[in-house]
Computed example of a mutant assay.
Amino acid sequence: MSDETNTGTGTPAGPQPEPLRFFGTTWIDHDGGYTGRRIGVAAGSLATAVAACFVLRFAYQGLAIADVGTPVTLMVVVMFAVCSALAFRHTWDAFTKRPDPDRQASLRGLLAIGSLLAYSFRSLTEAPGEKLHREEYETARDQYTRRTTRRTGNPSRKRNHR
């Protein structure tokens, strides 16, 4: 970042990085407890996914106690497996490109266990969404630098040195 600031506001000039959930802007320079936060997010989301699996286990036991039959039980197990796999893939893709907000809202109920697992696995390598935000931030910073770079002199007044 440059040392320039906006006149009167005291904020740095140019584009500002977008903070990530649980990480703020520590993803820029990997400072401020970034590694500890990654470990904590990975462990926390994995623990939450395990807890969600226990809830599903209790639901499965409820179906067994109700004696609803094999087809219904199998259908419920397959549904949760497929929904979790779809949610994992959807969440994993959202770390590399911006998801469609309407689709995200319609899938909110499905994105439980799969999303937690994707979040946990992504935290092992980087802050979830860091790659996407870094690309956007660097692009905005480069565009800002190109717009604000000043030319020296008037090109039409340059002498021809032949």
Score class of each variant (00 low, 15 high):
P101V: 07
R98G: 07
K131W: 09
S106M: 11
R146I: 04
G153P: 08
P101L: 06
S84G: 12
A140M: 08
P101R: 08
A140Y: 02
T70D: 14
A127Y: 00
Y144S: 01
G129N: 03
F80S: 04
A127C: 00
W92Y: 14
V78K: 06
L132P: 01
R134M: 10
H90A: 15
G153Q: 03
G129C: 05
T152V: 14
V72S: 10
L107F: 08
V82P: 02
R122M: 14
H90F: 15
R122E: 15
T70F: 13
I113W: 06
V77I: 13
D100N: 02
D93L: 13
A94W: 08
A81G: 13
T91C: 14
R134T: 09
T96G: 14
R89W: 14
R122Y: 09
P101N: 06
T125L: 10
V68L: 01
Y137M: 07
S106C: 07
R108F: 14
E130A: 01
S106Y: 10
T145G: 00
T152L: 15
P71T: 00
Y144D: 00
S106G: 08
S120D: 03
L117G: 07
R147D: 14
Q143K: 12
Y137T: 01
L132E: 05
A112D: 05
L86S: 08
S84H: 08
T148A: 00
A112W: 15
T139A: 14
L117S: 06
V76F: 12
E126T: 12
T148V: 01
E138D: 13
L107C: 06
R98H: 11
T125Q: 11
V78P: 06
T73H: 08
T70K: 12
V76N: 06
F88Y: 15
R150A: 13
V82Q: 03
E136Q: 15
R134F: 02
R141L: 10
M79E: 12
L111C: 02
D67R: 10
L116Q: 07
G69E: 03
Y119P: 03
R103P: 05
A127K: 00
T145C: 00
A118D: 05
Y137D: 06
T149G: 06
G153V: 04
R108G: 10
G153F: 07
E136R: 15
T145S: 01
R122W: 08
R122C: 12
V76H: 08
T148R: 00
G129R: 00
S120G: 03
T149F: 06
A94T: 05
S115F: 00
L111E: 04
G109E: 09
L117M: 10
P71F: 03
T73D: 04
S120C: 01
P128L: 02
E136P: 02
E136A: 15
G69Q: 05
P99I: 03
T152Y: 10
T91W: 07
L110W: 15
T148M: 01
V77R: 13
T139R: 14
A127H: 00
A94L: 05
T73F: 09
H133V: 08
F88R: 02
T149A: 09
L132I: 04
L74S: 13
D93S: 13
Y137W: 09
G69M: 03
G114L: 00
A87R: 05
S115N: 02
Q143E: 13
Q143G: 09
K97D: 10
L110K: 11
L111W: 04
Y144F: 05
V68R: 01
D102N: 13
G114S: 00
Y137K: 05
P101D: 11
S115Q: 04
L111A: 01
G69W: 04
